[in-house]
Design a protein around this nucleic acid. Sequence first.
DNA 1: GATGAATGAGCGTTCATTCAT
DNA 2: AATGAATGAACGCTCATTCAT
Lengths: 207, 207, 207, 207
Amino acid sequence: MTQQEPRRDSPSRILEAADELLGETGYDGTSIRDVARRAGVNKALVFYYFSTKAELFERVLERYHTDCVAALARAAASGGDEIARLHQVTDAYLDFVTTNQRYARLIQQMVSGGDAEQTLVERNLTPFYDHVTGLLGSLSPEFGPRAARQLYITLSGAVLNYCTYAPALASRWGDDPMSSPALEDRRAHVHWIIDTLAGQLRATAQA
Amino acid sequence: MTQQEPRRDSPSRILEAADELLGETGYDGTSIRDVARRAGVNKALVFYYFSTKAELFERVLERYHTDCVAALARAAASGGDEIARLHQVTDAYLDFVTTNQRYARLIQQMVSGGDAEQTLVERNLTPFYDHVTGLLGSLSPEFGPRAARQLYITLSGAVLNYCTYAPALASRWGDDPMSSPALEDRRAHVHWIIDTLAGQLRATAQA
Amino acid sequence: MTQQEPRRDSPSRILEAADELLGETGYDGTSIRDVARRAGVNKALVFYYFSTKAELFERVLERYHTDCVAALARAAASGGDEIARLHQVTDAYLDFVTTNQRYARLIQQMVSGGDAEQTLVERNLTPFYDHVTGLLGSLSPEFGPRAARQLYITLSGAVLNYCTYAPALASRWGDDPMSSPALEDRRAHVHWIIDTLAGQLRATAQA
Amino acid sequence: MTQQEPRRDSPSRILEAADELLGETGYDGTSIRDVARRAGVNKALVFYYFSTKAELFERVLERYHTDCVAALARAAASGGDEIARLHQVTDAYLDFVTTNQRYARLIQQMVSGGDAEQTLVERNLTPFYDHVTGLLGSLSPEFGPRAARQLYITLSGAVLNYCTYAPALASRWGDDPMSSPALEDRRAHVHWIIDTLAGQLRATAQA
DNA sequence: GATGAATGAGCGTTCATTCAT
DNA sequence: AATGAATGAACGCTCATTCAT
């Protein structure tokens, strides 16, 4: 029965603070001082646990990556044909990035800003990429890898960009694009895209 | 036979350098020192022409914005029904951002990093947004603005993300995603998407 | 009948601008850019006429110095005994510095800030100093130079400090210390001081 | 036997250096680099302890202000009638500013240079101002506040200006105006002024 | 595990000054 | 007489990082 409220331990508090700030202001816009202040710890302690600013960033990403991989795997494991599983994986991806909006921002920042290491970028694109191209490949054998890549970019954009563009356009739209009904709208749209495109693919394949 | 080497005028050199660096390392990651060094001018001269780092950034964007607006307007002015014009506008957008890849990066950086001003972001999303929603609105009256927004995000993602994701995945793909044939592949994919989705829309509307 | 209003020539406009700014923000706080902007001329033109910031400062002071010397000489030339002339000279000094308040500020800045050249400081203290010590010396021969110095400092303080302290205390006093009646109050006070002190000196000398 | 030489603690060293430099070259003329160099510390350390140049300046003043207030209070607490206490307070003020000559310079700089905040100026004029006007007010009731203000300016000038004018005229005078005997001369002069003026005031009041 | 002190490098920005035209 | 372009040095300030305790 301690007098202090049971705060989480320092490493997680630092990670949490870094997560928030990186999502808000980006890598270069976030200083270790800010992170330490928001975490309520001493600045040097950040370096005690995460020896470098870059490493701290990677650890933030790592958490998301692990969870994201798990979520996608779970979705892919549920049964159904390729199209059903594509729906489920994409749903899971949409769920994950709308629940963890900062992750979407971090990915987009990394992929559009040159300073992040190529490895980090790839690592975080891979999970959804692999599922999408895998499923499309087995959907119809004559559907080559080049076509799968094209569709992957379109689909990941349909999912990730919603998290970054919609807030930027919210003031123009006049409603909250991250509210539950709005997110359901988006999900329906993505489903419709998958259905329509997959239907067309099948029709073409049969012809 | 002047003593100085005949450089281009300083303002353009500075704009050019800023353009490159902002595209590569982002706003926070780019220092005025870097810009001046790459432009081959004195650091103070940057402030002589562009009184602030932020203004320099805006001027870089302004150039792109003006050209982009013009390109889209030209495309929309060419004849045809709504779908044809949607094709042409999207083609023009794809052309523009693949020709000016740094513009795509800048937009994505702004929209995913919190530091940019909301005004700037909106200003650079608006041109394509207006065309897309306008055309979809007149395509079928019962096609509401909410549906248009959804499609806009998907389409702009399909165009812009190619410029940021494809280079990041190039090493994994093994070919240059910005080569002419690769870009034609992408264009074909986007056309196919528009055709397929628009076809479905029409079919639904008639039912 | 020129179309333009007959502006003063550039050198005087620059001097005027420099005068205002030096009085407001001091030597270090005033930039040549500010001076040029306020004078409405090109920055380089300031250097064309006044080759150095320091020289510009000196030229501003020179104008005041010349006028001040003339005013004091005029006052001293008017007749009367030593005390009457002391009144007249001190009146003239008070008149001059309240009419040219910036001059009072400049003197106080120079004398309390270390950057100005010793020569400049002395040059601008000398006029009043010489009159005061001269008059006191001939007032009573046994009144030595050391006593005269003491009285000089007290008198010049009584005159100059009013121009710098009163504005600083104006908000606390609630009236404008540079209004005509307020200045007449001050003049009466200074007269009273001179009369009282000189009367005491005479009484002492006779004893 | 530590490797580092046993310096005094950094904050005091910085304050000391800032004090000296501000007194010598004024606020605008003093750079943090100079302060750090003279204190023998790293430039960034100055900001570690004093987060702003302005704050550093205020802290320098604060020390003087506190001590000055205490000295004046002590002097006012000693017994005697109003005139005796006026002597004692003025003596204490003269003592304080001649012992801390840089304080006199700082006050004069603030009051004659436009950049300092009004609050700071008032804060440092107030202590002596309050004592003088208080004592004069109780000396004779008919002696109004306006007359007290006049005398305050004259008296504070008689004290402060000695610290700034005398050094500037030292080379012309040929002796050290801050030597003990010279200061005693000044003190005698100020006493004579107070006695003479107060005597006159009393005589006038009785008439 | 945690902290305060310290640092060198760099930031965006402004300075007085020069010079060719 | 007047100007726009250019520069090196300095400005106040923040950075990521280190280290002794």
